[in-house]
Design a protein around this nucleic acid. Structure first.
Lengths: 228, 228
DNA sequence: TAAGCGTCGATTGTCGACAGTTTAGTCTTG
DNA sequence: CAAGACTAAACTGTCGACAATCGACGCTTA
């Protein structure tokens, strides 16, 4: 018999997890470009600014390093990741690999509810297209793709997507503007959903390839325009 | 002019890096089963045993957490990851996704030299099959698959493979024995290489699917036999 | 007897400090 | 005037310490 109190879904109150908070703030600063690519991240500086000691900052920095937002140089410190054209290709190539797979799995697991979630997210994309809020638009875009990964129901796949997404956000952030008309971006999601609904693997992959390949080309173009 | 050297930081040689050493030792202890799955990893204990302070141990543990070998429970510490059947499926599913892609890319990039490297590695597999050294056999097996990822020439893909590999090593380690006859395992690599040499994407994917699917089924079977 | 409460040891989260290394700035020298 | 050596400041890597928290054990109570 269980002696533990009944699992009345209490939301596991927010851990005052200092490392997690620092990591989140650092991530924001990086993807928003407040910390310029290539610049040094001084532990003591961040610590002083946040009013904490260096230990949590170090651990948070290691997390961001593993995520690819920072690079560590022994005895010299952490630096904000600098993206070259090759990096863009690596990231989008892997993204393609991951999302193809996720989309096929998602089609297999698709239920009426999950289908509606995807449809609704496309509606949100159209709505936010009218707003003048690029950050929000990028966020809602990723939310659609993340949904697909959630539906695919592979936790590791989802975590991988999140890691890739934070890198892509950083790239988008340093471009400074969207790579295409928001309405156009919203529209190009519809064939992807349609393919997932229909369910033929080859068709799904083809549409994912087209959709992500488009973003890949556009982002690549813009990054090459603004070399470091 | 920037005086800081470019943070390209690939060379990363000569680790007197304490964190890295601790991480390596901890990883070994975990994949070799010296630290049982589910058991608590006491920071102070590890630190005392290694003759260092807790700070490097904490950072190393965070690395292993990000790699999936440990799980962190706030205010309670780190625990050695416990694998359920679902986890096996997640891992092998993602591995399939990654290696399919890597193999297709590798075929595209294949040169006479890289082709010979793969052939030689299969020879090594046959040679080590005669030795009574399962750990070595597992290692050489992964080396073949890692080679494919190296030839694919996507650094992020390679890192992902390494992360997956450390988890798979842990699973194999806790099974305690190989999932198949070493000679048989060595032999089943040959069609994969042949497909890569020939170059038709569908054929490559089919052979990768067969090869990894076989391991997936066998490992899954054994893991289900030995439930936690 | 079994469930709930309180206490105590063990462990984590965080901090400030120190030593060794890297970096920036200055001075010397060809 | 440029290149190199030297010095001082800044920063990282590591450590030991302290307070807060967790888990286990034993005690009370219905």
């Amino acid at each position: 018999m269980r002696t533990l109190s009944p699992p009345v879904g209490l939301p596991a109150l927010a851990d005052t997890d200092l490392v997690g908070q620092v990591a989140r703030l650092l991530t924001q600063a990086v993807v928003e470009g407040r910390l310029a690519p290539g610049s040094k991240v001084v532990e003591a500086g961040i610590a002083r600014e946040l009013g904490v000691s260096r230990a949590p900052v170090r651990e948070a920095a290691r997390l961001l390093e593993q995520q690819g937002l920072l690079v560590a140089s022994p005895r010299r410190g952490f630096f904000v990741r600098k993206f070259a054209a090759d990096d863009i290709d690596d990231i989008y190539d892997l993204r393609l690999c991951v999302e193809r797979h996720a989309a096929v799995l998602a089609a297999r697991n698709l239920t009426p509810e999950t289908r509606d979630m995807l449809r609704r997210q496309i509606d949100v994309l159209h709505q936010t297209a009218d707003l003048e809020d690029p950050a929000r638009q990028v966020e809602e875009d990723y939310r659609f793709h993340r949904l697909i990964c959630e539906i695919a129901a592979n936790r590791r796949l989802l975590r991988l997507f999140d890691d890739l997404a934070s890198e892509m956000r950083m790239v988008i952030g340093l471009i400074g503007r969207l790579y295409d008309d928001p309405h156009e971006i919203a529209r190009t999601h519809e064939p992807v959903l349609a393919a997932i609904e229909q369910g033929h693997p080859e068709r799904i992959v083809a549409h994912i390839d087209y959709h992500i390949g488009h973003a890949w080309r556009e982002v690549g173009k813009l990054v090459r325009e603004i070399p470091a």
